[in-house]
Nucleic acid binder design. Structure first.
Lengths: 341, 341
DNA sequence: TACAAGTATGTTATCGCTAACATAATTATT
DNA sequence: AATAATTATGTTAGCGATAACATACTTGTA
C-alpha cells in the first residue's frame, strides 16, 4: 500500500482546485458546471488544474447547497424476472439523454421492503420516483404524496394512481386473452401460475381471465401453482401434472411466458398436437420465445414502452413541463403457433 | 392540485420535528438514528412527532455532516444479459443484512460510459465500488485508485486488480472446456460467439480455448459471430449456417448458454444426433438450461458466489475489517447431455 | 449530605458546495 | 471621454444534518 509515498490523502475540495488555479472557489464551481460567464483563459486554467489533481466534485455538498439532485428512484419487485431489467433498460436509455440518473431499489415483492426502500430513497431527495405497481402500504403512499416530486407508477393500470401512471390494464389483458381463447372454440381450460399472492399484476390478470370465462358460462377446469425454482422446469412439470390429472383439457393458460415455454417444450417432446389437441398461451412476450421451435401465443405487456414513457414523464417534469398523467398502453395479442385461428 | 388546501409545503427538517416534540434538534437526530442515550419518554415523544409530521430525514445533509454514505456503487455492463441481474441479486441479498445500499450503474460495454458512470457515482462518495471486469480507461483507473474506498473488481481474474478482486479466470475456463472436449475425442471444433470486441471476458475465454486447442495441435475449424437480436434465435441460425458450411464439424462451442440453447434446439429439431454426431457446450450455467429437453454442457461461472463475496468484502471493509484481496473461484464443468464422456 | 459517576440533553462549529448579491474589468455607445 | 451595458470574478450566507464538547440532571455511595 502507498508505494508512491503519497501524502496522507485528504480528499480534494473545490478549494484545492481554486488554489491550484489561482481563482476563487466560485469560479471553479462555475467552470465545472458550465454555468455563467467565465473567460476562456480561466476556464482552461481551471480545467487543467482539476484534471491534474484528479478532482472529483462532491455531489453531496452540491446537492445540499443547490437543493437539486439528479437521481431518479426506480423501485421494482425483482431482478430475476426479466421483465424488470427490460423496463430498466428503457428507462436508462431515456435518462441517458438527460442529466438524470436512475437508482434502482428492489423489493422482492414485499410491501414492507418496498416501504423501507422508498423511505431510504426519498431521504436522498430524488428528482422523481418510478415505482412498479399500484399497491403500497399506507405509509408508503403517504410518503409519496408528501414528497413533492413526480411519482410514476408503472406496469399496472387497475387502481388509483398517486400521481402519474403508465401501464397496461392487467385485468383487461386477462380478459382479452380469455375472449380470444373462447372465440377459437376452446372450452376446457387449465391455468398455471405462480403462487405469489403479492404479485398483484398476475392476480389481476387471472381475475380478468376468470371473469371473461364466466361471462361465457365456463370456468377454469383445472389449475396448478408453483413457487421458486426454474420457471422452465416448473412449466414442464406442472403441464405434465395437469394433463395427467385432467386429460380432457383443450387449452392451457400460463401466467408467464417462461412456464409457458416449459409447457410447450413438454408438449412437443411428448408428441402432443399443439394447437390441435391443446392450445397454449402465456403472457409477456419475452425475447426468448422467438427462438423456440413453435411460437407461443402471448400478450406483449409493452415493457419497453412503459419504461420509456415513464422516464419521459419524469424528465419532462424535472424541466417544469407538465405532461399527461395517465398513459394506457394496449397489450398486443400474438397468436403465434399455439393458439389456432 | 392542492385540494386539501395544504400550506405551501416547505419540506420538513429536523427543526420542525424538534419544535413539535419540544426538544433540541440534536436529540431528535439521536432518536432517529438510535445513537447515544435518550430517555424513553423523549424517545417516544420524538418518534410520535416524526411520524405525525411524516418526516423523512435528509440524507444529503446527514452525509455531508457525518462524512458517511451508506451507498455502494455497482457498475455492470448490461442488464439484458441475465448474468448481471443475477450477480446483483446476490449483492443485494448480502447488503440487505447491513446498512449499505447498492446503487447500480450500467455501461453498455462502453469504456467511456463506464468512466462517466464511475465519475458520477464517486461524486456521491460511496462506501465502496463493485465493478465488472478489469479493463478500464486510464482515467477510470486513476479515479478508483484515488477514491480511498474499497474497490472490488468482479467476474474476471486475468489481469492486475486495483484493489480487491473476485472472479473466475476466463482464460482458464476456456482452456478447461477445450481440454474436456479434446479428451472426449472431438477434433473438428466450431466456435460461435458475440461480435463484441469490448466483452473482454468472452474474448479471454476464446483465447484460453484456442490456446488449449493449439497445444493439442488443433485449431478452430470454423466460426461464426453475431450481434444484437434474440440470442436463442441467433444460436439457431448460426448453427444452421456453420453446419451447412462445415458439415464435418463434430463439436460446437458457444460463448454463452443462450446461443448454445438455440443451437441445441436446432439440432434436436433437425434430428442431429447430440452428442453422437456433434457435441455442444456453452458457458454460464443459466437457469434456463435446466428446462431444455437435453442438458447443455456448460461451465458455471459462479455468479452468485461472486456477488456474495464481493458484497461481503465491501461490508467487511466498511467496518474496518480487512479481508482477502483476491478470491479465485473455479468454474465448474457440467457435462450435461451434450458432451459425451 | 456531599461528591463522583453516569445519564440525558443542549450548543457550537463545521461538512463542501452553490445562490444571490456585490464588485471589478472590459467593451459598447453617444 | 464619460457613462451605460456587458462580462468576469469575488464575497457572504446558508443548505440540513452531525461530531464534539459542554452542561444539567439523576442516582449511588461513603
Amino acid at each position: 500500500m502507498d508505494p508512491q509515498h503519497t501524502p496522507p490523502k485528504r480528499t480534494l475540495t473545490l478549494r484545492d482546485v481554486s488554489e491550484a488555479a489561482g481563482v476563487s472557489e466560485m469560479t471553479v464551481s462555475r467552470v465545472l458546471r458550465n454555468r455563467g460567464d467565465v473567460s476562456d483563459a480561466t476556464r482552461l486554467k481551471v480545467n487543467e488544474a482539476a484534471k491534474k489533481l484528479g478532482y472529483v466534485p462532491n455531489k453531496i455538498a452540491g446537492a445540499l447547497a443547490s437543493q437539486r439532485v439528479n437521481l431518479v428512484a426506480v423501485i421494482i419487485p425483482s431482478m430475476s424476472n426479466m421483465v424488470f431489467p427490460e423496463v430498466m433498460t428503457s428507462i436508462s436509455e431515456v435518462l441517458d439523454e438527460t442529466p438524470l440518473q436512475p437508482v434502482i431499489g428492489v423489493t422482492n415483492y414485499q410491501p414492507e421492503k418496498e416501504e423501507a426502500v422508498l423511505f431510504e430513497m426519498l431521504s436522498w431527495r430524488p428528482s422523481g420516483v418510478i415505482i412498479a405497481g399500484l399497491e403500497h402500504t399506507d405509509a408508503a403512499r403517504a410518503m409519496m404524496q408528501n414528497a413533492d416530486v413526480p411519482i410514476v407508477e408503472i406496469m399496472d393500470l387497475d387502481g388509483d394512481p398517486i400521481d402519474a401512471i403508465v401501464g397496461v390494464s392487467q385485468r383487461r389483458a386477462g380478459r382479452e386473452m380469455a375472449e380470444a381463447i373462447i372465440a377459437q372454440g376452446y372450452r376446457k381450460i387449465g391455468f398455471m401460475g405462480t403462487n405469489m399472492p403479492l404479485d398483484h399484476r398476475a392476480r389481476k390478470r387471472l381475475e380478468g381471465f376468470t371473469e371473461a370465462l364466466e361471462k361465457a358460462g365456463i370456468g377454469i377446469a383445472d389449475q396448478e401453482f408453483y413457487s421458486g425454482g426454474s420457471a422452465l422446469v416448473k412449466g414442464r412439470e406442472m403441464t405434465e401434472t395437469i394433463l395427467k390429472r385432467s386429460p380432457d383439457l383443450d387449452f392451457l393458460y400460463y401466467s408467464n411466458d417462461m412456464i409457458g415455454a416449459g409447457g410447450l417444450l413438454y408438449c412437443l417432446a411428448n408428441g402432443i398436437d399443439v394447437p390441435g389437441k391443446v392450445g397454449l398461451a402465456g403472457f409477456n412476450g419475452v425475447e426468448l420465445l422467438d427462438g423456440l421451435p413453435k411460437q407461443l401465443a402471448t400478450m406483449d405487456a409493452e415493457r419497453h414502452q412503459i419504461g420509456r414513457i415513464a422516464a419521459e414523464i419524469i424528465a419532462a417534469r424535472a424541466n417544469g413541463i407538465d405532461v399527461e398523467q395517465r398513459v394506457e398502453l394496449k397489450p398486443r395479442l400474438q397468436f403465434g403457433d399455439t393458439l389456432r385461428r
